[in-house]
Amino acid sequence: MTTQECRPDVRTPEQGGVPLTTEPRAPHAQAGPADQAAPAFSPDTDPLEIIRWALEAHPDVLMPSAFNLNGVVLLDLAVKAGYQGEVVFVDTGYHFPETLQTRDRLAARYPELSFVTLNAGAHPEDGQTPSDLYATDADACCAARKVAPLQAYLRQQAPSALLNARSRDQAATRAEIPFVEAGTRVKINPLAHWTRERLEAYARDHDLPVNPLYWDGFLSVGCWTCTRAVRPGEDARAGRWAGKGKTECGLWAGGNAL
């Protein structure tokens, strides 16, 4: 395993960087168009088939991850399909200790992957943003601490595609995502049609190191400042930025989406 600690420069909007406020703030967003160059996968297509296609069609594919349940399952499937590339995680400085521990457990389990941590060692008083920005403008906090570092790294690496773990049942913002999404970079979503129950069953059957917070009701784990446990009947991402009219950090929805 090769573990890298990278801290790309975060540029201001005037310098061509990501603006400090991301859109949309509303909880609904339109899915990106399906990539017409991709095979016509059916909802029942095995994710392994989609990942193998991705590795052949996009040998430079890169995987961003926050190590939630979906991400842990995708990591295991990707390795089974032959993926040996990078897994890129952005340390915002506000992650739960359990999330960082999950990252380290995964890195030990999958030595064939290269785990890259951007902004390694970030913390609330590091001067990147005002320490209370998450409370006054959550969009701006996400843009500066999460979106900008990853966008900077992607400009540097220039992958043609991103392998990611989003699924349709996570939130309304993701209800129509296709397996392969066209865009500046092709976004490949092998788990698009997997339900939470199926993901949980896979994780249990394969004894995967799921973030322990998940089993305490944190069905989607982000920064501790903006994440709570999900209540009965809520979707998996309802605990993210609760009460802020926001369900996406800006990586996958809005004008600065990947």
Results as ranks from 00 to 15, higher is better:
Asp137Leu: 11
Glu56Ser: 13
Gly82Leu: 09
Tyr94Glu: 08
Lys187Pro: 01
Thr3Val: 13
Arg198Tyr: 03
Ile177His: 03
Val147Ser: 02
Pro47Cys: 06
Thr3Tyr: 07
Pro43Asn: 10
Arg198Met: 10
Arg174Val: 08
Asp46Tyr: 03
Glu181Gln: 14
Pro111Ala: 09
Thr45Asp: 03
Glu181Trp: 09
Asp169Gln: 14
Gln170Val: 03
Arg7Glu: 08
Gly255Thr: 11
Phe67His: 00
Asp132Phe: 08
Pro59Glu: 03
Thr129Gln: 05
Arg198Leu: 07
Arg204Met: 08
Pro24Trp: 13
Tyr214Arg: 05
Asp205Leu: 12
Gln84Lys: 15
Val10Gln: 11
Ala37Gln: 14
His193Ala: 03
Pro59Thr: 02
Ala138Cys: 14
Thr136Cys: 06
Leu100Ser: 07
Ala201Tyr: 05
His193Thr: 11
Gln157Phe: 03
Pro33Lys: 04
Lys187Val: 14
Met63Gln: 02
Ala192Cys: 15
Gly243Glu: 11
Gln84Thr: 15
Glu234Ile: 07
Asn68Ile: 05
Gln36Asp: 08
Glu197Val: 07
Val73Gln: 00
Gly254Trp: 03
Trp194Asp: 01
Leu154Ala: 08
Pro47Gln: 06
Ile188Lys: 00
Glu181Pro: 04
Phe179Ser: 00
Ala201Pro: 02
Gly71Met: 06
Pro19His: 07
Asn70Asp: 15
Cys223Arg: 02
Asp9Ala: 15
Tyr214Val: 05
Arg196Cys: 00
Leu199Gln: 10
Leu219Asn: 00
Thr117Gln: 15
Glu14Trp: 04
Asp60His: 01
Leu75Ser: 01
His123Ile: 04
Leu55Glu: 02
Leu77Asp: 00
Val72Gly: 01
Ala152Thr: 13
Leu48Pro: 00
Pro149Gln: 06
Leu55Pro: 00
Met1Leu: 10
Leu213Asn: 10
Ser114Glu: 15
Gly93Arg: 13
Asn68His: 13
Gln170Met: 10
Cys141Ala: 11
Phe96His: 09
Arg196Glu: 14
Glu23Ile: 02
Thr129Glu: 13
His95Thr: 05
Asn119Thr: 09
Pro39His: 10
Leu75His: 09
Ala182Gln: 14
Ala120Pro: 07
Ala152Ile: 14
Lys146Asn: 12
Asn164Glu: 11
Pro39Gln: 07
Phe179Ala: 10
Arg168Pro: 05
Phe218Asn: 01
Val61Met: 06
Gln156Ser: 13
Trp215Ile: 09
His28Asp: 14
Leu62Tyr: 00
Thr247Met: 07
Ala37Phe: 03
Phe89Arg: 01
Ser160Gln: 12
Val88Lys: 00
Arg185Thr: 11
Ala78Met: 02
Gly16Val: 08
Asp76Ala: 09
Ala229His: 05
Glu248Ala: 07
Ala140His: 04
Arg103Pro: 01
Leu251Gln: 06
Ser42Ala: 14
Tyr202Cys: 01
Tyr83Gln: 02
Glu86Cys: 01
